[in-house]
Amino acid sequence: MTEEMMVRTADPGIEIYVRNKRPADMTSFRPEQTVLYVHGATYPAETAFDLRLDGMSWMEYIAARGYDVWLLDLRGYGKSTRPAEMADKPEANGPIVTGQTAVKDIGAAVDFVLQRRNIPRLNLLGWSWGTTLMATYTTQNAAKVERLVLYAPAWIRQTASLVQAGPGKLGAYRMVNREQAKERWYAGVPEDKKSGLIPAGWFDAWADATFATDPVGAAMSPPVLRAPNGVVQDSMDFFGAGKPYYDPSKITVPTLLVHAEWDRDTPPYMAQMLFPLLVNSPDKRYVALAEGTHSILMERNRLKLFEAVQAFLDEGKKP
């Protein structure tokens, strides 16, 4: 069963898009069987988490196992409200949608789900930048979080970021074309493994769905996807400058770190540095997956990711 809705934020005129999938016969809701997902720095949630590949999306995989699953597009992404600055040229304004703003959007989505389902807590799942946001939210709102899953976790950077904002002063948003998206995806994959990484048609299915979420960008030549630059500003001010964005010792819930070996966006050293800092997580896990990139959720080995995350979530349901 699928439902879509727009959730009001505290800021006038800004609404965020949420989508829900759950078994059709599900009538009672529990914290340990409720999951909210948020995306990364550039692309929206539904075109990856709920992209049907080989007949099934990750969102559907989790829902089919008895879960009430939600996804969220932060403002400026996907089907959520685009801030007014995105109607102007990028250089006309400074970076928009910083982590502080994004965490507020997550708070609005969490409160919406908790109220709608009449439950006190839920599981959080973040990908890439979303791991920083979900972890930050958890440090501030531990009582509302059951378990925390950080897929491709970001931490203090020792290598250059693959998110390119171009030369000159950082504008409100950046523009990414399909070719750049593909190049970034394959970064770090050994030459002899590239051809087998993504099954035929899957990249195009993702790109078609993703670029279609930005009609303004899609009308440009070549078509682009516009993405807010608040995350780039934060990255320069914190992880890129050797400073943590949040305090991992304030995470007091069971936490899973999971990534793939060829990830060049959030390389393995990030999760390895972060893991020992989770000193107050009562149950922390670290899973490294073979033969995958930052986007392993849409690659040949995606079931390895699904299974690792599912095992961690399912433990929460055991008496």
Score class of each variant (00 low, 15 high):
183 E>G: 06
226 R>L: 09
146 E>R: 05
3 E>S: 14
237 D>C: 01
207 A>P: 03
204 D>F: 00
106 I>M: 15
160 A>F: 10
64 A>P: 03
6 M>V: 00
91 E>V: 09
42 T>F: 10
79 K>D: 13
26 M>I: 07
261 E>T: 13
234 D>E: 10
257 L>C: 10
295 S>Y: 01
145 V>W: 02
91 E>S: 13
135 A>R: 03
217 G>E: 11
80 S>H: 03
299 E>H: 08
2 T>S: 09
293 T>A: 03
268 P>V: 11
155 W>G: 02
57 S>P: 00
165 A>W: 01
224 V>H: 11
33 Q>M: 08
84 A>L: 15
293 T>H: 04
173 Y>D: 05
314 D>T: 13
119 I>M: 05
158 Q>I: 04
95 P>C: 10
20 N>C: 10
14 I>H: 01
113 V>M: 05
254 P>V: 07
28 S>F: 04
28 S>Y: 04
46 E>V: 07
278 L>N: 07
152 A>L: 01
18 V>H: 03
73 D>M: 00
138 T>C: 08
142 A>Q: 08
13 G>Q: 07
197 L>P: 12
139 T>Q: 00
45 A>F: 08
194 K>Y: 05
255 T>H: 02
288 A>E: 15
205 A>M: 08
235 S>Y: 12
286 Y>S: 12
80 S>I: 03
